[in-house]
Simulated assay, not measured.
Amino acid sequence: MENVLLPVFYLPPISWFSVFLNPENEVFFEQYESFPKQTFRNRTNIYGANGKLSLIIPIDHTGKREIKDIEISYREDWLKIHWKSIKNVYRGSAYFEYYEDKFEVLYQKKEKYLLDFNLKSIDIIQKILKTEKAYSLSEEYIKNPSEINFREKFSTKAEPEFEMEEYYQIFTDKYGFLKDLSILDLICNKGPESVTYLKNIK
Score class of each variant (00 low, 15 high):
77 D>H: 14
41 R>A: 05
135 Y>R: 07
63 G>E: 06
76 E>F: 06
97 E>V: 11
136 S>W: 02
106 L>H: 07
94 A>W: 01
102 K>Y: 11
47 Y>Q: 11
35 F>K: 02
62 T>A: 07
19 V>Y: 00
26 E>D: 13
82 H>F: 09
85 S>H: 07
118 N>M: 07
99 Y>N: 00
109 K>T: 10
30 E>Y: 08
53 L>V: 08
126 Q>H: 01
141 Y>N: 14
46 I>D: 01
118 N>D: 02
101 D>M: 01
39 T>W: 12
72 I>Q: 10
121 S>V: 03
33 E>D: 13
93 S>I: 12
67 I>H: 10
85 S>Y: 09
69 D>V: 03
118 N>Q: 07
26 E>M: 06
102 K>N: 06
75 R>E: 15
116 D>Q: 10
23 P>H: 13
140 E>K: 15
53 L>Q: 15
25 N>V: 03
117 F>P: 00
34 S>V: 06
93 S>L: 08
141 Y>H: 15
123 D>K: 15
95 Y>W: 15
35 F>Y: 15
49 A>M: 07
33 E>C: 06
32 Y>C: 11
141 Y>F: 15
28 F>T: 06
140 E>F: 06
125 I>S: 11
142 I>M: 02
120 K>E: 02
120 K>Q: 04
92 G>F: 12
125 I>G: 10
53 L>Y: 04
75 R>P: 02
138 S>I: 09
108 Q>G: 14
139 E>T: 15
122 I>N: 07
21 L>S: 00
139 E>W: 02
140 E>D: 12
141 Y>M: 12
84 K>E: 15
31 Q>K: 11
69 D>E: 08
63 G>L: 11
97 E>M: 04
135 Y>H: 06
139 E>N: 14
101 D>Q: 05
56 I>S: 06
61 H>Q: 13
95 Y>G: 01
53 L>H: 09
128 I>S: 05
85 S>V: 12
137 L>C: 09
130 K>G: 09
144 N>Q: 10
124 I>A: 11
126 Q>P: 01
74 Y>G: 03
46 I>L: 04
55 L>A: 09
104 E>M: 09
88 N>P: 11
139 E>P: 04
54 S>A: 15
24 E>K: 06
39 T>Y: 12
92 G>C: 09
135 Y>T: 02
22 N>C: 10
47 Y>E: 07
110 K>E: 07
138 S>L: 04
69 D>M: 04
95 Y>M: 04
101 D>V: 00
72 I>M: 10
19 V>P: 00
28 F>Y: 03
92 G>H: 09
137 L>F: 04
72 I>T: 13
80 K>Q: 14
57 I>S: 02
30 E>M: 08
126 Q>W: 00
20 F>E: 05
68 K>R: 14
92 G>W: 01
18 S>D: 02
87 K>T: 11
44 T>V: 13
42 N>D: 03
76 E>A: 07
130 K>N: 15
29 F>M: 08
80 K>D: 14
131 T>V: 14
33 E>M: 05
97 E>F: 10
35 F>E: 01
54 S>P: 02
65 R>H: 09
25 N>S: 07
53 L>M: 14
60 D>F: 13
24 E>H: 02
106 L>P: 09
136 S>G: 04
145 P>I: 05
121 S>E: 00
75 R>C: 10
136 S>N: 08
19 V>L: 03
87 K>A: 03
34 S>M: 06
22 N>Y: 11
59 I>M: 04
